[in-house]
Design a protein around this nucleic acid. Structure first.
Lengths: 213, 213
DNA sequence: GATGTATGAATGAATG
DNA sequence: CATTCATTCATACATC
């Protein structure tokens, strides 16, 4: 309904301007009366409010953006050309960082010797080094170590106690994830709304993207 | 925020009109050039899209019981995998609290205005209010503010170190490049909505939580 | 292209 | 507060 409202308002404004113009005859731009201006102002204000609500709702519904195809390459958008695996994937631009084989190797090395010390300051150094082998952010480096440690810890507990027959542990590690059914696509809204908070508004104009498969 | 942006754009339009008007002298209404009209048209179009999304979102939400009145409780809708082992209805929802959209909204609001005051007594009040929108404990509220502050602090320090080599910082910030230059005709919308290069959609989303290295 | 798995990222909670 | 841990979510990738 909102859309309809908009179109209507727009058309109306334009049309009335036209009339105004013809009345004056001499002017070659567009015209609007004070009243029309006020109307427009109000309409915009309404949209502004709606926009706010939208944003608000979006925030409420979790986050994590989803990329969108035609996006630019912004300042630090990452794109990993190194990935050997033939990525039949569309150039799904930015989102989740994917370590390059080189980066992964380096990280793995540091992790081994670094005595599992996620060093706060060290992160920056590591990031520096890794950046030479592909896009990377400190945050990603941080996350990587965080995850690495956490996951290696969850896998160890089974090794130490290999006493007798025990094959159930395997299921515990990476199984539960699958149990997350979503209630009616609840989290899918974020994809529908803002592909990415970083991206410009332009994406909002690509309606087709909304239901993107 | 949206409102502010809007007002700005509006003012601009009005002002330029004034100029136009004076040139013609004879007209007493407002004036807009074809170009300005186009700009306005685009802005409205954008709002229309946003509005559309809002409606869409709203509809979607309405069909999701989770967000309706009584829902609440934790788990954004997913079940606790741990419970699986227990035989009967071991509804032990004893896991990590997950704020409902409403709760999050309220919290975010309080956070914004509350000037980041973790007020000891205030917590209780907030908890009270939030409890009307879902399961919640003072502890959780406390934690939320704690985390919120800590995480938002990581993002703010956006040192505009454009002076010397910013090679090492390039990868650090993954945010600000949000609304930057780019190709395509779409980018123009950004300027319309966000006159200031500093303003990006991310600001609208209020997502200052990032960098955490 | 549906299903499964590995893993980057987000965030509530715990610890110093 | 600053850091870290733990759990969960979402997505890239592999598989059939």
């Amino acid at each position: 309904m909102c859309l309809k409202l908009t179109e209507r308002g727009e058309d109306k404004v334009v049309k009335e301007e036209m009339e105004q113009e013809s009345l004056n005859g001499t002017f070659d731009g567009r015209v609007m009366t004070e009243e029309q201006m006020e109307t427009l102002r109000k309409q915009i204000a309404i949209y502004a409010v709606l926009c706010d609500q939208l944003v608000f709702l979006h925030n409420s519904l979790s986050s994590v953006p989803l990329l969108s195809s035609g996006m630019n390459s912004m300042g630090g958008g990452y794109f990993d050309p190194m990935v050997a695996s033939s990525s039949a994937q569309g150039m799904s631009t930015r989102h989740r960082w994917t370590p390059t084989s080189m980066q992964l190797q380096i990280l793995e090395n540091i992790y081994k010797e670094g005595s599992g010390t996620p060093n706060p300051r060290r992160i920056k150094e590591i990031t520096m080094e890794l950046s030479e082998h592909g896009e990377i952010t400190e945050k990603s480096v941080y996350n990587w170590f965080q995850n690495r440690r956490a996951r290696s810890k969850r896998k160890q507990p089974q090794a130490p106690t290999i006493t007798s027959g025990q094959a159930d542990d395997a299921a515990v590690t990476t199984e539960e994830r699958g149990s997350c059914e979503d209630s009616g696509g609840f989290e899918s809204y974020e994809h529908i709304l803002f592909p990415s908070p970083d991206l410009g508004i332009e994406h909002l104009l690509n309606r087709d993207k909304f239901m993107e498969s």
